[in-house]
Structure formats: structure tokens, C-alpha cells
Design a protein around this nucleic acid. Sequence first.
DNA 1: TCGAAAGCAAGAGCAGCGCTCTCGTTATTG
DNA 2: CAATAACGAGAGCGCTGCTCTTGCTTTCGA
Lengths: 218, 218
Amino acid sequence: MTAAIKEEARRRIAAEGAAKLSLRAVARELGMASSALYRYFPSRDDLLTALIIDSYDALGEAAEAALAAVPPTEPARRWTEVCRAVRAWALAHPHEYALIHGTPVPGYAAPADTNRAGARVPLALLTVARDAHGAGLLGTPPGEPLPEPVRAEAAELAGEYAPGLPAAVTAAVAAAWAQLIGLVSFEVFGQFNGVVERSRPDFFAHTARGLATAAGLP
Amino acid sequence: MTAAIKEEARRRIAAEGAAKLSLRAVARELGMASSALYRYFPSRDDLLTALIIDSYDALGEAAEAALAAVPPTEPARRWTEVCRAVRAWALAHPHEYALIHGTPVPGYAAPADTNRAGARVPLALLTVARDAHGAGLLGTPPGEPLPEPVRAEAAELAGEYAPGLPAAVTAAVAAAWAQLIGLVSFEVFGQFNGVVERSRPDFFAHTARGLATAAGLP
DNA sequence: TCGAAAGCAAGAGCAGCGCTCTCGTTATTG
DNA sequence: CAATAACGAGAGCGCTGCTCTTGCTTTCGA
């Protein structure tokens, strides 16, 4: 039953966007009273949270599938494939993508489940770097040396998720994650309209390749 | 009068977010009937559009001020200062930033004024590259050669806004724009919580410096 | 100077929303 | 078989965006 509600809610979000998702409309479409929905979701926000987690998981799954499809011996291609998978999922599910990478609801504190699901994409990127490092395929990220506070915090982060990974790489992966989402968001939200038009796939692939280089991948 | 309405609306957005902006609440705060607002703004969306344009202009102004504060003879510092100004404005006005770089309203087509105001930040970045190029201070962007479709489209773009600028630089600036907004959005929207915490300013400065390098700035 | 016109604001009202409360119905289980 | 729990319907509250009508005030031209 909760699945049917979520499915219908997803359909309405795909049609009109998350902002206009109305419990009454979902209930109407399901042929039941609006008050009945409150048996399954205590509030509209809780329904949205469930949808957000689902979207995070779907996006994370797409990224992890791309990760598994390329052997660790080709780290650069593995990286760009993960990026490509993120972009493809976002373009295929723009409203669900907006749900997770658009404006957060005011005063909305993400529950722990959200964090775990939301970490799957950055962890996939980190896995590419970690495996490349383990195989001795990782170079040194180009550019200036890391400022000391960044180095320290990146070292902590690496200690938790990818022991042994150089701090410069860890920091570069974190930055690349944000930059990747920035690129995808610009495309999904139409900010590249009139700027980058025909060559978007190549433009994205080229930039994603640059992010790999910035992280030290050959 | 429209100014007073916008001011009060901005105040309420800063307090509760754009999603909860209610004309009735604005009118209440202004001591007038809600219907009176419709004399100045035909709809809630029109009020929001006006606020969006104002926010774009405020952000653009901050970027242009940073641009003007650094001489073109120091392109790298000029670049990072523009980035820093964007980040500083966003952190100081998170809700207005969300207005312009959050989820777009469903079915909302940005009017021409929005586009012009929204182009000020990328144009500031492009100006840094253009001036550096004019002064002979621009190197060649590192990385793979541009795919042909990207080169062609970047050349068109350069012809319009920065004649003579190499296509690789133009493309890198467009990518850097999206990546910069990605970085800032992650910080403003809390996506770096638990990932990058203490070293955010240095992390951002370091990454912005890397974007400059990627665009060919020395 | 006076009356028409325009600008402005208020109030009532409509349909829709999230959410709560109560009440009947249907399954399930001891 | 009966007690209990789960479920759904309906009414209703206060809120929203928006419209329509009414009336007041200011301005302006004859």
C-alpha cells in the first residue's frame, strides 16, 4: 500500500514537480479519502522523505552499477563511466533528481537514512580512487599543495572511508563530487540553455575526464 | 510600494524559505489586505520572479565588484577573488541564493530579464579569461584536446562574448562556472556536512584555484 | 470650480491545501 | 465466537492563491 502511494506520488512529481505534490491529489487518483493516507505516512514531509531516500538509492544504484561494470584496472574509464551514469540517471529522472539536489525544504533536517543513501555516489567515486591507489595506478593530483587544514581534514576522511589514500586525492574527490553535481544540475535545470546546447554529451565527458585528472587518475 | 513589498517578502524568505512565502503573510505584515498586493504583482510567481532577478543582480554585482577590485595583471588572483565573492554572497544570503540556484519552479520559463541578470557571474569569469588573454597572460588549458563538437560550440560562444579567446578556454570557463556553483551549492545546502567541515574556506580557495588552472590561467 | 476618471485598498468569497478527529466497517486473532 | 486491531470515510479547521465587487481618495481637464 505504501508502495502504491509512493508510486502515484512519483508519477505526480514527474508530471508537476515536487513543490505541487498534494496528498489530496494522490488520494483522489488512488480512489480513497485523503485522510486515509495518514495511516501510511504521518505527514506530507514524511512521504517526501521516503521518496527522497528512494531517489538517492536509485541514483546510487546507477552509479554503483557503472562502477561494477568497469574493471579497476581502467580507473580513468571507470571514473568517467560513474559520472556518465549519474548524468544519465539525472536526465532520465529530472524531477526525482531535483528532489535530492534541489533546494532543501526549509528547516528540513535529513534523517540518518538519507545520509547513508546520499553517500553512495561519492563513495563510488572514492572507490575508483581507492582501487586505483591499491593497484598502484594513482598519480599525484596536479596543482598547488593542499593547505594544511584541508590536508588534515581530508586525512581524517580518508582514514574512515579509504585508508591509505593520499589526502590530496581524497580532497580532490570531494571537490569533484560537488563539481560533478554542479555540472549535472546545470544541465538538468536548464542553466546551460543558450550556452552549451548541441555538444552537451561531449562537453560533459570532457569535463568529467578533467575531474578524473584532477583527482590523480591517469 | 513595490519596493516595500519586495523588502518584506525578502525578509520572510530569509526567515522561512521561498517555498513558504505567502502573499497573505506579507500583506498582514504590511498592514494591508492581501488583495491589495495584486495591484503591484499580478501573482505570487511574479513577485518571486522579481525577487529572483534582484538576487541575480545582487550576486552579479558582488562578482563584478570583486572583478573590478583586482587588476587584470593578476588573472589568477582575480579569478579566485570572483569565486570567493560568489561564495561569500551565497553564504550571506542563503535563501536568496536558493531562489536562483535551487530547484526551478515547475513549468517556470525564465523571462529575458532573468537571463541577462543571470549571465553576470559567468560573464565576470569570462572577463578574467578575456583580459588575461588580451594581456598575453593566458596559457593552454591542460588535459585532453577538446572534442570537435565542443570546440565548434565554444568557438561560437567565444565569438559572441570574447572574440579571439581560444575555444578550449571558453569551454573550460563554462565548465568552471557550473563547477563553482556546484561547490557553493554544496556548502550552502549542507551537502558537505560531515564531509568537509572545519577547512571549508581553504578547501574552497584551493578548489577555485584549480578551476583557474583548468581554464589556462597561470 | 466642479465633475469625470483613474488609482488604490478593503472585504467577501471560491476552490484547494495539510492535517485532525470521529465514527463505521472489515480482518484477524485468541 | 467475540474481542481487538487495522483500515477507510467524512466533516471540519485554518490556511493558501486568487477574483470580484465596492467604496474612498487623488488627480486632472473643461
